[in-house]
């Protein structure tokens, strides 16, 4: 009896998730919002493997052309937060999708070069939206995905 319910739940679960895009848990941690949400939305740790986050968070004074440096205590906290939830240590649907085809020897240097991002953003739909909304940067997820900060990317 228990087994049937269990199997039914798995089937239902699979059925429900295959029609949806991945979801991320919204980031509510005030320290992360403060340190990493001032210039752009707070990106989800599950979009990149640990090695990528380590490279990014250990070099904040040279952050994609800007100085995003923070004090050492906050930096350690932010790093730990990202490492705990990275794509290669979580087993959620989102994490698995974002790890697919990642070259572990050469981890992505940013989200917009991660295989999952590239795969989803290289068609005419994307180009049209880019021009229509006059987007300045591919990293401006919220411009096209209104609910990105709530963890949803299938709203368009």
């Amino acid at each position: 009896m228990k087994k049937t319910i269990f199997i039914a739940a798995i089937i239902l679960g699979l059925g429900a998730t295959t029609v949806q895009a991945e979801r991320f848990t919204p980031i509510k941690d005030a320290k992360i919002l403060d340190a990493c949400g001032e210039c752009h939305m707070t990106f989800y740790p599950q979009m990149l493997p640990q090695a990528s986050w380590r490279n990014i968070i250990n070099d904040l004074s040279n952050h994609f052309g800007e100085d995003a440096s923070i004090d050492a205590t906050t930096q350690a906290y932010v790093l730990n937060y990202h490492l705990n939830d990275s794509a290669d240590v979580k087993s959620t649907r989102a994490a698995r999708k974002w790890m697919k085809r990642v070259n572990r020897a050469k981890p992505p240097t940013r989200i917009v070069t991660a295989p999952r991002f590239v795969k989803k953003h290289n068609d005419r739909d994307f180009d049209r939206m880019w021009n229509r909304l006059k987007v300045k940067s591919k990293a401006d997820c919220t411009k096209c995905h209104k609910d990105a900060q709530r963890g949803l990317f299938d709203d368009d």
Partner: peptide, 13 residues
């Protein structure tokens, strides 16, 4: 562009 106007980060925020 003037102090009275809003601005934008390079990522569009």
């Amino acid at each position: 562009a003037t102090p009275q106007q809003g601005g934008q980060t390079r990522t569009g925020k």
